[in-house]
Amino acid sequence: MEVQVTVNGQSHSADCEPRTLLVHFIREQLGLTGTNIGCDTSSCGACTVHIDGESVKSCTMFAAQARGADITTIEGLAADDGTLHPMQQAFMECHGLQCGYCTPGMVMAATSLLSENPSPTETEVREGLEGNLCRCTGYHNIVKSVLAAAGGES
């Protein structure tokens, strides 16, 4: 079936099977491999993208369900001139990533969180990221990064 989506401001159209998971569609049909796959049970959040501004796990959606949607992936966060998004910058400055594999999903979840709650407490950050797993950082610096991006004390 034909699936048309807008990803990072660009319209894309590609043919896929109805069973094609959105994350595979984004990665393989559209070639945007920044969105990662870390599990098969909707547990890890590595595949988090924004659909119409809200974080979702793209492994738990069929591409068919996203037809016509406005999708933002990690590739769409930094400015056109290469300037990192404040959340990306905060992750860099607070050492919120190590191997980087959970990072795109973590950053997308974090930006979605701040759009809903611009000044979260530490507890709210942890709860807001409860659907994202990281094996490298123990979350300490991820939480610090999100608080820093929110403009709070880090």
Partner: peptide, 9 residues
């Protein structure tokens, strides 16, 4: 329920 991503969908 679940986590924020799950609750969004």
């Amino acid at each position: 329920v679940g986590d924020p991503q799950v609750r969004h969908r």
